[in-house]
Design a protein around this nucleic acid. Sequence first.
DNA 1: TCTTACAACTTGTATATACACGTGTCAAGA
DNA 2: TCTTGACACGTGTATATACAAGTTGTAAGA
Lengths: 240, 240
Amino acid sequence: MKVNRSKQLIIARDIISKIKYGQYRPGTYLPSENQLTDLYGASRETIRKALNELNDLGLIQKIKGKGSIVLDIQRYTFPISGITSFKELNSSQAMNAQTKVLQNKPASVPEYFLARGVDNDQRATFLERLRIVNGEPSVLDIDYLLDPPIQKVPTAEATNSLYEYLEGQLGLRISYATKEVTVEKPNVEQKKLLNLTDRDMVVAVRSMTYLDDTTLVQLTESYHRPDKFKFTDFARRKRI
Amino acid sequence: MKVNRSKQLIIARDIISKIKYGQYRPGTYLPSENQLTDLYGASRETIRKALNELNDLGLIQKIKGKGSIVLDIQRYTFPISGITSFKELNSSQAMNAQTKVLQNKPASVPEYFLARGVDNDQRATFLERLRIVNGEPSVLDIDYLLDPPIQKVPTAEATNSLYEYLEGQLGLRISYATKEVTVEKPNVEQKKLLNLTDRDMVVAVRSMTYLDDTTLVQLTESYHRPDKFKFTDFARRKRI
DNA sequence: TCTTACAACTTGTATATACACGTGTCAAGA
DNA sequence: TCTTGACACGTGTATATACAAGTTGTAAGA
């Protein structure tokens, strides 16, 4: 897979790791842009692009006339915002999670997505996985991988990391997704698999994932146990 | 209030309105960066900064070697991602919503936020508002406006638009917020105000809002009727 | 016919320069 | 003592230039 080795990303990653490991502490200012220019041997514009990346991520706050403050933010929950695979999430947070593949076979696309512009006779791989966190079933993931460009998914890869397979093995460049979150009454299967009672609801996250070239590749329905569901978000106020 | 009249924002807004009004249609390419450079009489870097803004918002997809495609995305629901006031949301979507101010008085900060670093004897204005959409109570908003910098909130302003008051009248520059979403059992007050039954749950959105200079100004607990709750999100895959 | 190479376009990255503008300090002056 | 203004230093915006690299069409060549 192609890796971005641009200077601005190398610098961004370096500053992030220095924040992560305490070299730059929350509440303190980073070195000024001109100092960073010398530090990294890059132009100020390149430094600024790296810092804007951190600003967007909510790691720093840029203040005109003063400098860039390191913010004190840690998020340890399921990211609805952002596209992160369960595998990446798991390894970045020591969640002690495991994945059980329940189904993996060709199938057609369900109603919800047909109503949103997906073609009626679109071929797809139906993938049903149960995420078990600390011994408790917490999330039921139902994926439809579209063919083309995905012919099939080896169950071993589905157990390990679907995104690693798509990006690494198939060379697909996953770029963006739209997501919709609602709270619903669970159906029989969801109740059984997630150990829900009659009084419980289920949190449904439905998403459509696209490649670099705007090709639709993945449809997902994610059902979360409401008591296990919690996510945090960082947002900047936009005045466009 | 200071308005940003930078060239790159003017250009971004202009292209957005051209997308909105169909001059640039979903699935088609925008003019190339060089053409836009001529069109707006700006340098290519300035054009690129405007386009990157649209890219982040999910309005276009930039493709190296080809151009920028207009994406087909519309979101008409409650934005958890992003900081948008209810008033802005209402006017941008013709929601037919009204706001009822239930309480507006000095108070102390509740447990949840104390546990997250807010000072114990922090003074605050307690503001409780019910949002009624199409005649149905849908959201219960509970705000704590911190003093300083907010001494009090006129109830007229709380009914109209809190953010207009904070940004316009008080000149505060709201910059970013952290949010946390969970699904909970409602308490007695929430049940009564939102017309919930014993079987219902409530969606809780708790957020902390900060100014440009990282000053904490607003704590919010937002309780949504689960059947009225629905939000959509656009996310780009980040590999940092 | 098929393949290769090139040209012409596109966006991506990096640099140097200039000035605007917000913030804080400090000394001169009323 | 208080205010003002100059200055240093910070980030914000805009420009011009250069080259890297992805995409596509076309013409040359086997």
